[in-house]
C-alpha cells in the first residue's frame, strides 16, 4: 500500500455563520492523481487553503506526510499552482528561466547564490513542461497555457512530492486545455508526482485522473475513476443539487454539455 500523503479527518470549516465544509474525510496516497470537483462555493478552495496552511484548521485534523499540519515544516515537499495566468503582471520583464528559478528561493535559503546544479535543475523543470525552447523568452510573450506551464515548472523545480493545482486551466484557451492535462498525466506517471487537482470541469479530466472526490460542503463521493464513471445521473444530481448533463469524457464534452457545473 502506498504511503498516505494527505490525511483529512472530520474537517469542518465555517466563515462567520455559514458552514462551508462539513465533516470531510479524505486520504490521498503517494502516486495518486486526485481530481476534486464541485460547483462554485462548494468549499474546494477552503479545503485547499487549509491543506496549504493558509487557513487554520478549525475542526478535525489534517496530516501531511504523516505529520500533524501545525507541526509540519517540510513545505518544500508541496508545490502549489493557482489560477495564476489571470492575475499576474504579464508585463513583468522576466524570462521563463528567471521565473522558474524563483521557485528555488526558499530551498536555496538566504544569502545563497545560484550555482551550476541549480541552473541544470531549472532547465530540467522547464523541459519537463515542454517549454525548453522558450526558456529565454519574456514570460509576457507566452500564451496563457504556456504561462501556466511555467508556473508548474516553478513548482516542480524544488522537487515537490505533491503538487496542488487550483483551477489551473482558468484563462487557458480550450484547445490547449487537453494538452495541459496530458502533461499533468505525464508528471504523475513518469515522475511519480502525487497530484491534487481542483476543478469544476470533470468532463475533461476524468480520463486523466486516477481518483475523484466530489465536494459540495460534504464529501459526496470519493473513489477511483472507474467507480466514478459508474455513478448514474440521479446520483450526480444529488451531489450537485441540480440536474446535470450526461457525463461522457471520451467525446468532445463541449458538444455534449458534459461539464458538471
Amino acid at each position: 500500500m502506498a504511503e498516505p500523503i494527505i490525511e483529512i479527518r472530520h474537517v469542518s470549516y465555517r466563515y462567520e455563520k455559514e458552514n462551508v465544509l462539513e465533516d470531510i474525510n479524505l486520504t490521498i496516497h503517494e502516486g495518486d492523481f486526485l481530481g476534486i470537483v464541485g460547483p462554485n462555493g462548494s468549499g474546494k478552495s477552503t479545503l485547499i487553503k487549509q491543506i496549504l496552511g493558509l487557513l487554520k484548521v478549525q475542526k478535525g485534523s489534517i496530516k501531511l506526510f504523516g505529520q500533524e499540519i501545525n507541526r509540519f515544516k517540510e513545505w518544500q515537499k508541496i508545490g502549489f499552482v493557482s489560477q495564476k495566468a489571470n492575475s499576474f503582471n504579464t508585463g513583468f520583464p522576466a524570462t521563463v528561466f528567471e521565473v522558474v528559478s524563483s521557485g528555488l528561493t526558499k530551498k536555496l535559503g538566504l544569502f545563497k547564490f545560484f550555482g551550476k546544479a541549480e541552473h541544470h535543475k531549472v532547465l530540467q523543470a522547464i523541459d519537463s513542461v515542454g517549454l525548453l525552447e522558450f526558456a529565454k523568452r519574456n514570460i509576457g510573450e507566452l500564451s496563457g497555457g504556456q504561462q501556466q506551464r511555467v508556473f508548474i515548472a516553478r513548482a516542480l523545480v524544488s522537487d515537490p512530492k505533491l503538487l496542488i493545482l487550483d483551477e489551473p486551466t482558468v484563462g487557458v484557451d480550450a484547445k490547449n486545455v487537453q494538452s495541459f492535462y496530458e502533461m499533468l498525466e505525464d508528471l504523475n506517471k513518469k515522475f511519480g508526482i502525487t497530484l491534487l487537482l481542483v476543478t469544476h470541469d470533470i468532463g475533461t479530466i476524468s480520463d486523466k485522473v486516477t481518483h475523484v472526490a466530489c465536494l459540495n460542503k460534504n464529501l459526496h463521493f470519493h473513489g477511483n475513476t472507474a467507480e466514478f464513471e459508474s455513478l448514474n445521473i440521479s446520483e450526480m444530481s444529488e451531489i450537485y443539487g441540480h440536474d446535470v448533463h450526461v457525463l461522457t469524457h471520451n467525446h468532445d464534452h463541449h458538444n455534449h454539455g458534459g461539464t458538471v457545473r
Binding site: 496549504l52 493558509l54 513545505w75 502549489f80 493557482s82 495564476k84 499576474f88 503582471n89 513583468f92 522576466a94 528567471e98 521565473v99 528559478s101 524563483s102 528555488l104 528561493t105 526558499k106 536555496l108 538566504l110 544569502f111 545560484f114
Partner: peptide, 22 residues
C-alpha cells in the same frame, strides 16, 4: 545578497509569502 528574495517578492508577492521566505 537578497536578489532572489527581492525578485520573488516583486514577481509574485503572494507566492513569496506562501513559500515561507521572510
Amino acid at each position: 545578497l537578497l536578489y532572489k528574495e527581492l525578485f520573488l517578492l516583486s514577481f509574485d508577492e503572494e507566492h513569496a509569502k506562501a513559500s515561507g521566505i521572510a
